[in-house]
Nucleic acid binder design. Structure first.
Lengths: 112, 112
DNA sequence: CGATATACCTTGACATATGAGGTATATCGT
DNA sequence: ACGATATACCTCATATGTCAAGGTATATCG
């Protein structure tokens, strides 16, 4: 089983911000990194990814620039802003709260 | 901070099914139970709740009937079906996978 | 006897993920 | 040399679920 769209929803931005917090990178690489880190359990559809970049940039959470080197010139790199880092911190906190809440509501069944 | 709509999305049905798995009950009571169990961190908007009941019933995961006793006659009770129990099991499994994936992608920051 | 809690429901608006489609270069095997 | 695949970007229309806003009615409590 993999993660459904409705479950992914709301976490996309946080995942991207978390990747960018480790250093500037570009869309394709972010997606590969996410796939590797999750053992293939989670990956973005391309439309999801680029929609998210647009949204994050419009919200001032990331900035974008084109690569300058030869073969990487076609890559669009992203950098997280200060506001983006603050948002990531808030997102992680919300995730911790979400995990506690859903564990309380869903995991009782395992105890039976 | 409380759980945002986009984070809640996709978990609503599972939460309702989990409540119904403990015994038949009705909308208002489900919402109160969820609020109590989460210390107020999570509660359904009424429109969300009744939209979910409709969806779950159409998908054959729950069945509905009106209460028969005096003051409870206005209550619409729901019961989880076999398909609903199977769905809940799958939902819990997906939640466990989601928790592992998001912990891997988001919690690195705590280690710094 | 007025305010609040209980209890149900519908409709339209909104945001996000995605399918489907498009463009172009680099790399690798044969 | 060249076809297949990977890399790398993008847009548009659509589907779905949550919610704000609105409505109705009974029960309870001060």
């Amino acid at each position: 089983m993999s993660i459904s769209p409705d479950i992914l929803r709301g976490h996309t931005d946080a995942i991207i911000l978390a990747q960018l917090a480790e250093g500037d990178t570009y869309g394709y690489a972010i997606n590969k990194a996410v796939q590797q880190r999750t053992g293939g359990a989670l990956g973005f559809k391309e439309a999801t990814l680029y929609t998210a970049f647009k949204r994050l940039e419009q919200n001032g959470l990331i900035t974008a620039y084109w690569g300058e080197d030869g073969p990487g010139a076609r890559r669009r790199y992203y950098a997280v802003t200060e506001a983006g880092r603050a948002q990531l911190t808030a997102d992680i906190q919300e995730w911790n709260e979400t995990r506690a809440v859903l564990d309380a509501l869903l995991t009782y069944k395992e105890e039976q």
